[in-house]
Design a protein around this nucleic acid. Structure first.
Lengths: 209, 209
DNA sequence: TGAATAGTGTCTTTAAGACACTATTCA
DNA sequence: TGAATAGTGTCTTAAAGACACTATTCA
């Protein structure tokens, strides 16, 4: 089967989208989104995962990556099993109006069914690690965002403070976002330039941020 | 099922250990070492892979890591299938006397059964990438080695030249190898200090070499 | 002594981080 | 004008790379 850890940023905090299981084992417990591969329908496991995610949130996740395959006799009380685990990044703005979605900060994830806590731990580790040397966190933002939005999600996902000037410099040098001409976010302060993604693919950096 | 890409360094070249398939499909073709999980015997897929590798080379590989899970209808003519792929690093000195082992330079791998060429491509990519920021290549060396041995396998796996002085400095700073007191490799030149691994686990570096 | 490999010192280049400064808006 | 956020300039620190130098052995 396949399982997916769905990450989002809500109120400037890195969160996981979880659901409650309907059937035993672990009926009523929180769990990642998962399902069985439909051999007739799914050309491979990634396509099965896309289908599972679409059925949860209604659309394709902007970023999806295979994480690890968990297997063994210990992870499911019914016996030996295999799960190909994925993680996906989803901008909160795309799901905030969906009443069936609930998100938990990664520091406050409830007890989970099966070995899903282990999957979550590995997914968080991968996300944090890739955030230090790639454009990964940008997939947590909506299509238009300010430099400060980006700054904040990098700090959130990496878990440390980053200098404003160095961050701006480093990001612009990587060339994966571009200014949107004449679009600014306004407020009781100087208007902020809006940016958008210029490359839809994950951009790895030469060095860390 | 599980498949394993076995890397080794022979004559200063990065090689893959391949075997010929006995049964159809692809009977007679070269392929990675693989096998089915024995649910009774293997506590998880990694243990199954260890068993497969032991049956090929006679002992456990010094380094083994899960690579990626390949799945789909296209990879096996018999229909939809899943393979959890691993890669392992093996010092050539441990297998050079084994007549059933044949190794091919990674730039000259023959046509392979199933999607094994794809698995190999991904394994090489992972190996090269991790070599730039971890102690990974050291697992290709025997227990005693000189700084130059280490230098050469890094150049081999990464695929670029590395400055001798910078390399030495960077490696010693990482603290995953230690001098063996009063042990030198001699020849028609100044004797070379022998080193051994001081930490059996993979050490990631802060920055690249 | 010359060939071969081992090992070191030092300078240059480049990236990262600290931090203070200027800019623009609204109340 | 003061609060708030946006955006820039400059200095310091540290790592990486280039490269030349010294060291030790054997033939």
């Amino acid at each position: 089967m396949v399982d997916a850890a769905l990450f989002t940023i809500r109120n400037r905090r890195l969160c996981l989208i979880l659901g409650r299981r309907k059937e035993p084992p672990f009926a009523g417990a929180f769990a990642l989104s998962g399902g069985f591969v439909h051999v007739e329908e799914d050309s491979d496991a990634e396509m099965a995962t896309r289908r599972v995610i679409r059925s949860k949130i209604g659309f394709d996740a902007p970023y999806l990556e295979q994480l690890f395959t968990f297997s063994g006799a210990a992870r499911d009380p019914r016996g030996w099993s295999v799960s190909i685990a994925y993680y996906a990044l989803i901008p909160w703005t795309l799901v905030e109006d969906n009443p069936s979605i609930s998100a938990f900060p990664v520091e406050a994830v409830p007890a989970l069914a099966f070995d899903h806590s282990q999957i979550v731990a590995k997914a968080v580790e991968r996300l944090r690690s890739k955030a230090t040397y790639s454009s990964l966190p940008v997939f947590l933002l909506p299509t238009e965002f300010t430099m400060n939005d980006l700054h904040q999600i990098y700090e959130q996902t990496i878990g440390t403070r980053l200098d404003k000037a160095s961050f701006r410099h480093k990001i612009l040098e990587q060339d994966f976002i571009e200014e949107i001409a004449n679009r600014f976010r306004t407020g009781a302060h100087r208007p902020a330039q809006l940016y958008r993604l210029s490359s839809k693919v994950l951009t790895p950096f030469e060095r860390k941020i």
